[in-house]
């Protein structure tokens, strides 16, 4: 546990109070099991998503900095966000204020108009996934598993902002959630598109762009015979889940891939009831897939020759030198 006094400042972000309420419900249920204490920042505001930075950078930084200033008043230096976009904005603002003295000065001048101040570097901004994996650890999580997700083939979908540009794991081929899901007993499929883009706000602006990006991810998860896609971000969940029908219509495909949050998977493995985890609020229903838990999983399709196939050349290990 790296947080002093085991407490974390919690920044939910707007989605978790609306379209991603299932994420918050399941996260809170899981955190209780893991005995992590999250204290919601009082009167937090929106992080501006990707929109505010496009228009006017100083108000955008100031908007985010208000949250940092409010969080810094709490008796902890750990600030946690479950939404990847919120996490990035909070962390980017802290980082850029640290890098650029002029920005720090200007943002603090704006904050002063509201009687606030933020000293960059005060908080350590983290994503919920990183907190659970790094501070709790695989072993402690494994100890809480009462109903392993055996038989379920899951595609771990990280999306962009949890691993880029601030690298909490490899920015190209992260694996820390893979290991988490394995600890929960699931079969994790190789998933080359795991850190590719879900389309972000393009679903609102340019469907041509967004639906193709969503299609690629669904296509890849289906090709690797995943039963469920697991996400760490409300935007990713929304795009892959809510627009799956549109994608099917546009491309004549028949994807039927439920998209759940990693906290929902943890809750299921901890033996919590699906309803308590907000399962059922996804637009592509997950129940049929979840019924596979406990059954014998389908065999993983082989993509690489075995080391001792008669004629085959040795396959290099994945381990770096």
């Amino acid at each position: 546990m790296t947080a002093p006094n085991g407490q974390y400042a919690y920044y939910p972000g707007c989605s978790l109070k609306a379209s991603a309420s299932a994420y918050e419900r399941s996260a809170m249920a899981v955190l209780e099991r893991l005995e992590l204490r999250f204290v919601e920042i009082d009167d937090w505001n929106c992080c501006g998503a990707t929109e505010y930075f496009s228009l006017n950078r100083l108000p955008a930084y100031s908007l985010v900095a208000r949250n940092l200033a409010l969080a810094a008043a709490q008796p902890t230096h750990e600030l946690v966000a479950p939404c990847s976009a919120c996490y990035l904005n909070l962390r980017k603002t802290d980082d850029h204020m640290r890098q650029e003295p002029k920005l720090k000065e200007q943002v603090n001048r704006a904050l002063a108009a509201g009687g606030l101040h933020y000293e960059p570097g005060t908080l350590r901004v983290r994503h919920l996934l990183d907190v659970i994996i790094d501070d709790v650890g695989y072993e402690a999580i494994a100890a809480k598993v009462t109903r392993p997700l055996a038989g379920l083939r899951v595609a771990p979908y990280y999306g962009c902002l949890v691993v880029r540009p601030f690298e909490s794991d490899d920015p190209e081929y992260p694996t820390h959630m893979d290991r988490l899901l394995e600890v929960l007993g699931a079969t994790v499929v190789d998933f080359p598109m795991k850190a590719h883009c879900c389309g972000g706000h393009m679903t609102q602006i340019s469907e041509d762009t967004a639906f193709e990006l969503i299609r690629r991810i669904l296509h890849n998860a289906a090709a690797y015979q995943a039963d469920v896609i697991v996400t760490v971000c409300p935007m990713c969940q929304l795009n892959l889940d809510a627009y799956q029908g549109n994608v099917n219509r546009r491309f004549g495909t028949a994807f039927n891939l439920p998209v759940l949050y990693f906290t929902q998977m943890m809750g299921l493995a901890f033996g919590l009831q699906p309803e308590a985890l907000g399962i059922g609020s996804e637009l592509v229903p997950a129940q049929a897939a979840l019924n596979k838990i406990g059954q014998v999983p389908a065999e993983t399709p082989r993509h690489t020759p075995k080391r001792r196939d008669k004629d085959a050349l040795p396959m290099p290990s994945r381990q770096r030198r």
């Binding site: 490899d170 190209e172 081929y173 190789d190 993509h303 690489t304 020759p305 396959m315 290099p316 290990s317 994945r318 381990q319 770096r320 030198r321």
Partner: peptide
């Protein structure tokens, strides 16, 4: 080259 995972060495045969 495993340090550049997007080139697939060690994953793609």
């Amino acid at each position: 080259p495993r340090q550049i995972p997007q080139y697939g060495y060690g994953r793609l045969a």
